[in-house]
Amino acid sequence: MSIASEPMPPQLATSTDRAELAALAEDTIARGSKSFAAAAKLFPPEVRRSAMLLYAWCRHCDDVVDGQQFGFARRPAAELPAPMQRLDALATDTMRALWGDTTLAPAFLSLADVVARHAIPARFPIEHLEGYRMDVEAERYATIGETLDYCYRVAGVVGIMMAMVMGARDDRTLDRASDLGIAFQLTNIARDIVEDARHGRVYVPAEWLAEAGLQEGDLTDAAHREAVAGLAARLVDHAEPYYRSAFFGLSALPARSAWAVATAHGVYRQIGLDLKARGADAVGTRISTGRLAKLRHVALGAAKVAATRLPLPLRRPQELYARPMRRRPAPGEERSSGDRRTGP
C-alpha cells in the first residue's frame, strides 16, 4: 500500500454523478450508522454531501475487510477471498481512484470526489487503509500507546478528513479532530470487547489484560464478566480527555458544522457513559442511544456550540496521543516509535 510519489489529483464528479453518488451514500449511512445519520442531517447541504460520500468509502472498506454488509450480516469465510486479498483489492482500487480512474465502483468514486473537492492529501486515506491491515494481520497491542496507534488509523484519520471537508486546515484543529475520532474508537472498543474477541480481534492492550489477571481467551468467558466490565470502564475513562480536547476544537469550525459534530460527540460519549454505568450487565451486549436521547444531544449540541463561540483555552494537553506527522523528539533525543509528545 505504499506509493513512490503523491498521486495526481483525481477528477471531480459531475453534478449529476455526484447527486447519484450522494443518494447511494445516504442509503449506506441510514443502514450502517444511525448515530452518524442523525448528526449528518445538521451539516450544511454541501458539507453533508461530502461527509456522506467520505463515509460511504469508509463503510465500504470496513464491510469488505469484515465480510459484512453495512456492519452486519457477516458472510461465511468460505464464500469470500482471503482477508489479505480483499484488503489488497481495496488498496488497489483506492489508489486507482486517487490517480483519477473513473471506472470504479461508487464507493471509490465518492472518495475521489471528496479528495479532489477538498484538497485532502492522499496520505490520509492511505493511513486509514493501514488500520485495516492491522486488523487483517490480527495485530496485538502491548501498550495503550499501541492501541492508540490503531485508533488513530481507523478513526482519527477519518476525523481529520471530515474536518477538512468542513474547511479546517490548521494542525491544531486537525489534532482536535483526530482526538474525536480516537475517542469514538475507544468507545467502540469498550462496547465490542466480547464480540471482537469472538472474531479473533483484541484491542485491549496486553498490559491491561495482565493487570486484570486475564488472558485473551477469558474475554468471551461469562465467568470473567466483572473483570471485562472493568476493562471496558477503563477504556471509557481513557476516552474522556480525548472527548474533552475535541470539544474545544468545535470553536474552529463553522457554527452549523460544529453543531453536527457536537451532536455526534454527545451521542457517542453517552454510549460509553451508559456502558460504564451498567457494568457487567452490559458485557456482551450492544449499547446504543435511543431516538429521544439523540434528540436531547441535538439540543445539547447547539448549547455546546454556543459555548465554544466564546474565547476558550486552545492549548491541547501534551499527554494526549500525537499523530505521526506531529511527533518530534526533544533536543538531543532520537525520534522513536513510542514518542507520544504532541506538537504545539
Rank of each mutant, 00 (worst) to 15 (best):
residue 2 S to A: 13
residue 6 E to T: 12
residue 8 M to Q: 14
residue 12 L to M: 11
residue 15 S to Q: 12
residue 17 D to Y: 02
residue 18 R to L: 12
residue 23 A to Y: 04
residue 24 L to Q: 13
residue 27 D to N: 12
residue 35 S to M: 07
residue 36 F to S: 00
residue 37 A to E: 13
residue 38 A to R: 07
residue 39 A to P: 08
residue 47 V to H: 00
residue 58 C to L: 11
residue 59 R to W: 02
residue 61 C to S: 14
residue 63 D to I: 01
residue 64 V to H: 02
residue 68 Q to I: 01
residue 70 F to E: 08
residue 76 P to F: 10
residue 76 P to E: 11
residue 80 L to R: 15
residue 81 P to I: 09
residue 84 M to I: 13
residue 84 M to G: 07
residue 99 W to H: 15
residue 100 G to Y: 11
residue 102 T to A: 13
residue 103 T to K: 12
residue 106 P to T: 05
residue 108 F to T: 00
residue 116 A to F: 03
residue 118 H to E: 00
residue 123 R to F: 08
residue 123 R to S: 08
residue 128 H to V: 01
residue 134 M to R: 15
residue 140 R to W: 05
residue 142 A to P: 06
residue 147 T to P: 05
residue 148 L to N: 04
residue 150 Y to K: 01
residue 153 R to K: 15
residue 163 A to E: 00
residue 164 M to L: 08
residue 169 R to L: 10
residue 169 R to I: 13
residue 170 D to W: 10
residue 174 L to M: 04
residue 188 N to H: 04
residue 193 I to L: 08
residue 194 V to Q: 14
residue 197 A to S: 12
residue 198 R to M: 09
residue 199 H to Y: 12
residue 202 V to Q: 02
residue 210 A to I: 11
residue 210 A to M: 07
residue 212 A to Q: 10
residue 214 L to M: 09
residue 214 L to R: 05
residue 217 G to F: 06
residue 219 L to N: 01
residue 219 L to S: 01
residue 221 D to F: 06
residue 225 R to K: 09
residue 239 A to V: 07
residue 243 Y to D: 02
residue 245 S to Q: 06
residue 246 A to M: 04
residue 247 F to H: 11
residue 252 A to N: 07
residue 259 W to H: 13
residue 259 W to C: 00
residue 262 A to Q: 07
residue 264 A to W: 00
residue 264 A to G: 15
residue 267 V to K: 01
residue 268 Y to Q: 06
residue 269 R to G: 07
residue 270 Q to M: 13
residue 276 K to E: 09
residue 288 S to C: 03
residue 291 R to G: 04
residue 292 L to P: 06
residue 294 K to T: 14
residue 307 A to V: 10
residue 314 L to Q: 14
residue 316 R to H: 11
residue 318 Q to R: 14
residue 323 R to C: 02
residue 326 R to C: 08
residue 333 E to H: 11
residue 333 E to G: 06
residue 336 S to P: 00
residue 341 R to F: 07
residue 343 G to N: 11
